[in-house]
Amino acid sequence: MTLDGVLAGVLDGLLAALVLAAAGWTLAAPAAFPATIGFVGFGLLLTLAWVRLGAPDVALTEAAIGTGATGVILLLAVVRLRGGEEEVSAATPGRALVLAAGLLAGAVGLALALAVLALPDPAPGLAAEAAARTAPLGLGNPVAAVLMVFRGLDTLLESVVLVFTVLAVWSMAPDRHWGGRPGPEFPRQDDGPLALLARLLPPVGLVIGIYIAWVGTDAPGGKFQGGTILAAMWVVAWAAGLVQAPSVADRRVRLMLVAGPLVFVLVGLAGFGIADGFLAYPPALAKPLILVIEAAMTLSVAAALALLIAGPPEHPPERVT
């Protein structure tokens, strides 16, 4: 093992230890709030792990969605779900059950570890074939090629899942709130640090988000990561009270939400005509078509994530004044 091999091993070991420590803290933390903070830390450490595993796309996604968006949602929820300590302590299982659960979970983890170690080391994957097939499509990033071309159906179904998850979240509100604005109303702050951040950060964030979405076809990045950054910018402005969430019944919001998957379906169906089947791209037009879909998807992902963070409408619709 060369010197930097050893160093890399030490770094990986340290990183793994930190990740597990953060995970342990998330479980063992006394209250929900510190646990959530621990989870955000865990997410960032995990992003480093993904970089070490040679998956920059996934590292970006983990940072943006796995840690960022999930962290925001959980923090908002922890703040609003205070109380119920005695109910929680009553429902916590006794020592024997905890021990048994620990043993069982440990056994499953151990079996999994053994199985992972027993996996064939030069795993029979599709790395070579995927990489080889990406270039003729005019794409640089094999992950984008897999997401948009080879396994396009997965991405399509997943974007449809996002759309109707938003509707599912909206439908959790009581009937009288239908038509109202999603999520809590933040007071408008005209001065103070948050107002400064809300005015300074979004322009920079928009540029970065669009850049990441744009560069996705050739370098690590893509619609999910870019979309999340755009959504984050909207959340910052919304939290500072500078913008209001659009009404649930607003036709424009629904069009934005549905744009991505609908464009994907239409291009897919067009594939019957111009290419040799559903979701097939004619070689010449592959890249431009994919970029069109990516743009629409970025828009939809941004809208969907922002609305998922906002949550169901909490007030009845204001009478049209």
Partner: peptide
């Protein structure tokens, strides 16, 4: 809940 969860894990181990 905990009992059902443990039943699930036990089922995994039993099948395996």
């Amino acid at each position: 809940w905990p009992v059902a969860g443990m039943a699930l894990l036990a089922l995994i181990l039993a099948l395996f």
